[in-house]
Nucleic acid binder design. Structure first.
Length: 136
DNA sequence: CGTTTGACTACGC
DNA sequence: CGCGTAGCCAAAC
């Protein structure tokens, strides 16, 4: 499945989905992966195991010049996946805080508050059909 | 062409 | 909670 040209197709799906994450919301590699329709040519178990990593690979290979909110994708623990202290990690955190995301003292983002529920939820959000998430 | 390297996760201790 | 590990493979060296 992930040999060309399908790999390219998978990457593009990732970019399309990430493009829809609104400011103030975050998603995880695994969540993004689960939003991509399953490929019949690949074993579901294998897909589940690898897809999140491929999402990361897709983001890493985002074409230069293609503008997508890559920073709104973090890992399932709610933390930034780049090495702590690295320029990339600092940049991602800065962009997220710029979006209004608050990190807790241990550097984690609370999914309860900021999880993006997917394209459908995004639509409702933009049409003011959903109340903002309240603080716990 | 063989080896190393990942922007991951779930699970066990 | 934190830390280690298996699962698994395309890219990048």
């Amino acid at each position: 499945m992930f040999n060309p040209p399908n790999a390219k197709s998978f990457f593009e799906k990732v970019w399309d989905i990430v493009l829809q994450i609104p400011a103030g919301r975050v998603s995880s590699y695994g969540q993004i992966a689960s939003m991509i329709p399953p490929d019949e040519n690949i074993e579901p178990a294998r897909m589940r195991s690898l897809a999140p990593r491929w999402v990361g690979t897709a983001l890493r290979k985002t074409p230069r010049g293609k503008s997508i909110p890559w920073h709104r994708v973090i890992n399932s623990q709610g933390t930034i996946s780049f090495p702590p202290g690295s320029p990339q990690a600092e940049e991602q955190r800065r962009l997220l805080e710029q979006d209004g995301i608050i990190f807790d003292s241990s550097g984690k983002v609370n999914f309860r508050l900021y999880a993006w529920e997917g394209p459908d939820h995004d639509y409702l959000l933009h049409h003011n059909l959903l109340p903002p998430k309240e603080l716990t």
